[in-house]
Design a protein around this nucleic acid. Sequence first.
DNA 1: CCGGAAATGAACCAACGGGTTCAAGTTATT
DNA 2: AATAACTTGAACCCGTTGGTTCATTTCCGG
Lengths: 211, 211
Amino acid sequence: MIDGGARRGRADKRTAILAAAFRVFAARGYAQACVRDIADEAGVAKPTVYNHLTDKESLFRESLLAAADRARVRLDAALDGLRAPGDPAVALARAVGELAEVLASDEVRSLRLLALGNAALFPELVGEAHRRTSAATATALADRLARLVLSGALRRCEPDRAAGHLLSLVDGALDARSAWGSRELPAAEARAAGEDAVEVFLLAYGGQASE
Amino acid sequence: MIDGGARRGRADKRTAILAAAFRVFAARGYAQACVRDIADEAGVAKPTVYNHLTDKESLFRESLLAAADRARVRLDAALDGLRAPGDPAVALARAVGELAEVLASDEVRSLRLLALGNAALFPELVGEAHRRTSAATATALADRLARLVLSGALRRCEPDRAAGHLLSLVDGALDARSAWGSRELPAAEARAAGEDAVEVFLLAYGGQASE
DNA sequence: CCGGAAATGAACCAACGGGTTCAAGTTATT
DNA sequence: AATAACTTGAACCCGTTGGTTCATTTCCGG
């Protein structure tokens, strides 16, 4: 999120470049994206790109990590609904539905795809992106689930493990319905996938009351 | 699996080329893999490659689809254990453990990664690979689960939906434990992930006896 | 409004790699 | 043995693209 390098050039150009880079990389893939296109998309001249970032590789790294941080914010926000009081079951369905929507969004999907698809070239990025998004979401969700256990809405269990299971169900449902992302998934359907996941999750983890 | 084009050149060379191509693509990624390397890996001269396949793109397509068909065979084999008689719960754990091992294997992981990572260049391949592996496995598993429902080992449910849930749990567990595949997963751990998935699955779907 | 940093565009370089060609050697088939 | 198909290796062509240079213009802080 923060890296304290002495920035060169105007900051707004830099962020425009990184955002454009991510879009172009996502659309064409790393190798097929040429710096020229990225510069155009950013509304900037090619030398300007090289004034801000040393080379194409760092362009990829930085733009991807920035996207990961943006994704993290959105994922966290989706789970924030679980902090509000109210019926835990409906809150869970709502929050996870929202989470599924975010996970199915273009930006988040592209992020994961780009990291995975270029693992050969950027091995560190896979783990780093995973840490900043999936892993972070898992622990955040585990925290929320722990409270639900205490409140009796969920049966006694290990929150981390349960969070992993719930996220697996969501991811899996999204993958299956979109055929690995080859079919565009409308927001409503993504939300439905999330709610479906919650339903099964509650079958396994629900408290006595919700069974 | 079969495509009836009039084959040119010696058949053994062709299969060697496709196998080598898949290995090189998996190791370096599509764009970074050069035809020269593939020819070397196959123990063949470059023009020979172009004698069998028109260009690099078809080289990728064919090698990937061939790998998908190989994967399909292994996936089906893993589920075949469910046909044997015996305690359904242990059979399920064993079969899904084996399935997880196959899913975590280099070849199957690479296949998925290559298809997803080059979706921009080969959009059709994503759906096709998904159909030949994940989707096929899902329906095969659904068939097995249906029998388990009839035998009373599982509670009444829609087999397709249940199969999707079980596979989600397996995939998710593998992704989480390997950090999206960035950490190599030993076979034993993969198997454990599969068995863990079955455990939760049975919590949600187990018959009265297994609860 | 002034001065230095930053942005521009155009031209340029060099490496890389897909794809072809060709003459010579090898393998099957009849 | 003869013939046709296949393979080989090496050289070659050429488009693409990452990265640089530079003279000129634009922008922003003081």
